[in-house]
């Protein structure tokens, strides 16, 4: 536990001492804020148009769902930005240690690889959660002008925690495989995109294969959360994916010890 805490605080410090955390949070919040504003403006426009049309036709204005048209839209955008940003949060975790030779310090210290890996994982996950948490401000603004349903918003954010853990575990694995940070970014990005789009090929596959491909898709499982559903199968999917990647990471790092 002490070792875990030492690694964790070292990693957190390194994120916040360097510009990394600030730049990533800044760019992410700027982009997501900008897109949130546009989604909101779009919704305004629709309200206006529908209102006018309803007046012209002399009928009732159809109800426009704030959750569906703003919240879900925004979540869709945020998924995609994280797909691009997470590889940059994770790339340095092990690749940098290898490049700098500090991995020799970690590997020759009386500390277990699992502790190193978990310290790094949770540091990255904390930074991610902080940035995700900051976007809740947008919904507070939304609450000031409308009345969104908070249930799906909260489950949506819960989904982000699971999705983030999964993305980060993929990133850590890629970072453990190389000492080159650019390679780590590309590997992570490739893996994430592949599992993002994997259900596309389901349309051309047999019924069993299609089921499997659907199941493996990152995005399919997220949609349930964003609709306000907490399904154990989604939770299990994300957690098992995360555990698997973290397990592989530990093995990759330790493999040096058994490669005779």
């Amino acid at each position: 536990m002490r070792n875990f805490a030492a690694i964790y605080s070292k990693e957190m410090r390194s994120y916040f001492v360097s510009p990394v955390a600030y730049v990533i949070a800044g760019v992410f919040l700027f982009l997501s804020g900008y897109l949130f504003r546009n989604i909101l403006m779009q919704f305004n426009l629709w309200c206006l148009q529908f209102g006018q049309r309803a007046q012209q036709m002399g009928g009732q204005m159809p109800a426009l769902n704030l959750n569906e048209m703003v919240v879900t839209q925004f979540f869709g955008v945020m998924d995609f930005i994280w797909l691009l940003v997470i590889p940059m949060l994770t790339m340095r975790l092990f690749a940098e240690e290898k490049k700098n030779g500090t991995i020799e310090l970690l590997m020759t210290s009386p500390i277990r690889t699992v502790e190193v890996m978990l310290g790094k994982f949770f540091a990255c996950f904390s930074l991610y959660s902080i940035i995700v948490g900051l976007t809740l401000v947008y919904f507070v603004i939304l609450e000031a002008y409308g009345s969104p349903d908070w249930g799906p918003i909260f489950t949506g954010y819960m989904g982000y925690l699971f999705l983030g853990a999964t993305f980060i575990s993929v990133g850590i694995l890629a970072s453990a495989l190389t000492e080159n940070q650019i390679v780590a970014v590309l590997l992570t990005f490739g893996m994430l995109l592949l599992f993002w789009l994997i259900d596309w090929s389901a349309s051309f596959a047999g019924p069993t294969a299609a089921k499997i491909l659907h199941y493996l898709s990152f995005i399919e499982h997220l949609e349930d959360f964003q609709r306000g559903v907490i399904d154990s199968k989604d939770v299990i999917f994300y957690l098992s994916f995360t555990f698997f990647c973290l397990f592989l990471t530990t093995r990759v790092i330790e493999s040096r010890r058994w490669r005779r």
């Binding site: 070792n3 410090r13 390194s14 700098n100 020799e104 500390i111």
Partner: peptide
């Protein structure tokens, strides 16, 4: 090791504190 295993973004004191903890 041949290349001192130091973290370039840490101060000397905090680095040694970190090492002392994991040791």
């Amino acid at each position: 090791p041949e290349q001192p295993p130091v973290y370039h973004d840490m101060t000397v004191g905090s680095y040694l504190r970190f090492v002392a903890k994991i040791k």
